[in-house]
Nucleic acid binder design. Structure first.
Length: 576
DNA sequence: GCCGTTTTCGGCCCGACTGTTTTCAGTCG
């Protein structure tokens, strides 16, 4: 079954070829918008099965049929027809920064340039210089674009992007004239990976700020440098964009550059119906010419008659409609979280001792937490049942010593048939049990679905850990029927985890959103393997916010009593 | 191709920067 990302990529291929072929502007942008929507939407395969595909904004009858065809066959007739007109390598040419559709179409129709190799040949032979609007600077930019394409980094992981963004801000603040400064773009929306780093700031002297910016010694190339805007490339090809405006429009500026593009389009479409034109410079009233500006974003949304939309929700999948009806969820806050259920010590594959971890947890001010070392089926790094019982004896005392309630538990392997790495009588004694898949990732969809439903039906399993197994920069996760497993989790009172390890972010936000809609309780956990990683829980929290989760949806936002009641209720209900 | 608190037809977000132009097209976000 293709993932949403794969389907979106196919739609974007269609979109590009449609434009090359001279299709109507609004027709091919419809494909582009649908592709953007899918990136953050619940799994298409589930929506399709439930007949809910056209509930997505921008997906009507025609696109729903195309998407269904892609899911069923991996391609669609429309794409096949278009692909006969252009070589597959045309997408390389379109991938070069500075070459858009118009240029690519001209190069292909007039000069037969349909690949990167053709393009380089045309540059070297001087043919390209004969083309219209191809001066020396443009050709030099294309040459640089080709280099960037070849050495292109994938999108940058959020934690790393945050580090670089902080460095950029520190540098800018060391220079002249910066008043207020902040992150925008996908970084501020806390997407798991970001394509570039967007920074906005206010100043009375934008030119001085931009000048300082492009002189940063980390900048390897300056892509553009105007009176209010600059763009640079860093050593590894990561792009940083800076926009500078006067302080009275800081709210407008931040709102504009936080996006997402799709969110902004929907906000502006709504505004346009009220004869308002929204941009980073303010909200223009087309009837009387007045311009409304705001120093904060709250003012911008209020002026449009909308509820304030937190950045994590701005993905264009229905939040604008909810904000207009004043029905946005009150998102989970970091201060709501009372504990962390998932962490390891030197008893298994953690790097710090039980006491060090408990001391570090207490320092974070939690009410409770669980120590969850691995079960033995994972090999040398696991703990035997006897070892864990020994661990249990010291846990309560250490918790008392540091003033935190330490729960005894384990992260138990889910075996290929859905049974667990410890027998029931061992699990029964534990306060909390996390069950996770660490082997046999490549089972069939049917086997994996059965396997996980069986785990939900085990009365002693409190939480399923990192429920898809996906890695942000690689493995897409094991395949199973999400809706069927989520329904089983809801029915049995099994919580699903949002694991905050930067490599995991698992559940992904779109699936956590789906799980919530089916009545599942979730947890946010660090999965820390040393004390420094306890902070990973903050990353899980922002992903929970992207999923639209509230305090009520999250188990570790409940007081200890509520947590223990959740565990007890499931054991009671499924007693065997 | 999508969509509706003016609409089932006729609209469809908004602006900055570059390079090549003699007033703007193309690209990007």
């Amino acid at each position: 079954m293709p993932s949403n990302t794969e389907i979106a990529e196919t739609l974007l291929r269609i979109r590009k070829l449609m434009e090359l072929a001279g299709e109507t502007f609004y027709k091919f942008t419809a494909y582009e918008r649908a592709a953007a929507t899918l990136e953050n939407a619940p799994p298409v395969t589930d929506l399709l099965a439930a007949g809910e595909l056209t509930t997505l904004p921008g997906v009507g009858k025609s696109l729903a049929a195309t998407i269904e065809e892609i899911v069923r066959t991996g391609t669609c007739a429309q794409l096949e027809t278009l692909q006969q007109r252009y070589p597959p390598t045309i997408f390389e040419v379109l991938g070069v920064s500075g070459i858009g559709i118009k240029t690519a179409a001209m190069l292909f129709e007039t000069y037969g340039i349909g690949s990167l190799a053709d393009l380089e040949k045309a540059i070297d032979s001087g043919v390209l210089a004969e083309a219209p609007r191809m001066g020396p600077k443009t050709i030099e930019n294309i040459r640089r674009g080709i280099l960037a394409y070849r050495g292109r980094m994938r999108r940058t992981a959020l934690p790393r992007a945050l580090v670089i963004a902080h460095e950029a801000v520190t540098y800018l603040e060391s220079g002249p004239a910066v008043h207020r400064i902040g992150f925008a773009g996908s970084l501020r929306r806390a997407e798991v990976t970001v394509g570039d780093i967007d920074i906005v700031c206010t100043s009375d002297s934008a030119a001085a700020v931009i000048d300082h910016f492009v002189r940063w010694d980390r900048a390897r190339a300056v892509l553009s440098e105007g009176p209010t805007k600059g763009s640079i490339w860093l050593e590894d090809g990561l792009q940083v964009d800076l926009r500078v405006l006067p302080d009275n429009v800081y709210g407008n500026l931040l709102q504009h550059f936080t996006g997402s593009r799709e969110h902004n389009i929907q906000v502006r479409e709504h505004a346009a119906r009220k004869n308002l034109r929204v941009s980073e410079n303010g909200i223009l009233n087309l009837e009387n010419g007045d311009v409304f500006t705001s120093r904060d974003e709250q003012g911008v949304y209020a002026a449009l008659g909308m509820q304030y939309v937190p950045p994590e929700l701005r993905s264009g999948i229905g939040e604008v409609e909810l904000a207009l009806k004043n029905e946005l969820p009150e998102l989970l806050e970091a201060t709501d979280v009372r504990g962390d259920f998932h962490m390891h010590t030197t008893w298994s594959d953690g790097r710090q001792t039980l006491e060090e971890m408990i001391a570090a947890v207490a320092a974070r001010g939690y009410e409770y937490h669980a120590i969850t070392d691995h079960s033995p089926s994972r090999g040398v790094i696991g703990c035997s049942a006897d070892e864990l019982r020994t661990q249990r004896e010291s846990i309560r005392d250490l918790g008392d010593k540091y003033g935190v309630r330490t729960l005894w538990g384990s992260e138990v392997d889910i075996l290929p048939d859905g049974s667990l790495g410890f027998p029931d009588d061992v699990l029964q004694g534990m306060d909390i049990v996390i069950a996770s898949v660490h082997s046999s990732f490549r089972q069939t969809r049917e086997e994996m679905t059965k396997r996980l439903i069986r785990v939900c039906e085990n009365p002693y399993v409190t939480i399923i850990g990192h429920p898809t197994g996906r890695k942000v920069d690689g493995f897409a996760g094991y395949e199973y029927d999400y809706d069927a497993v989520f329904a089983a989790a809801a029915r049995t009172g099994t919580a699903l985890e949002i694991d905050g390890q930067p490599k995991r972010f698992d559940l992904p936000a779109n699936l956590a959103r789906r799980a919530k809609s089916l009545g599942v309780t979730l947890t946010v956990d660090s999965d820390a393997h040393d004390a420094g990683q306890l902070g990973n829980i903050d990353l899980a929290i922002v992903q929970a916010r992207r999923a639209g989760l509230t305090r009520d949806d999250v188990l570790n936002a409940r007081p200890l009593k509520g947590v223990l009641e959740f565990v007890r209720a499931k054991r009671e209900r499924l007693k065997r």
